[in-house]
Structure formats: structure tokens, C-alpha cells
Amino acid sequence: MKIIVNGEAQETRAPTLAALLGELGKGEAKVATSVNEVFVPKHQRADHGLHEGDRVEVVAPRQGG
């Protein structure tokens, strides 16, 4: 299915958000996630199913003022 990850369209077979992070090489990384503009906590990623057209954001710590 086609989803949007950090603003870019991509194909995935990942059934869940946790599986998608594994595909992205971020399974163990310090990241936070949202799907369709709603925060998805780490402990819910394995149960959060992905659907065609979902908009996923994956963010990490970064410099800020």
C-alpha cells in the first residue's frame, strides 16, 4: 500500500506502525511518531494498524532555541 512518511510517498507492506519503523531502520532508534496528525505513543505502535494513504511522521531529537 502507499503511505506518506515524513511528507514523502512510499510503498510499504508493514501492517503496523512498529513494523514500518523496522522497515525504516528506526525500530530501536530514539524517535516519536504520529499518524494522521495524532500522536501514537511508543507502546501503541505494535497495535496501530496502517492503512492506505496514512500520513506518518517520525521525529527525533534535534537542536532548538
Binding site: 511528507g7 525504516l24 531529537p61 534535534r62 537542536q63 532548538g64 532555541g65
Partner: peptide
């Protein structure tokens, strides 16, 4: 102060 930004690749 710190922030959060996209990182997927």
C-alpha cells in the same frame, strides 16, 4: 532548549 524534527531515513 531542544526540538523535534523529522528523521526517517
Amino acid at each position: 532548549t531542544v526540538s523535534v524534527r523529522r528523521e526517517a531515513g
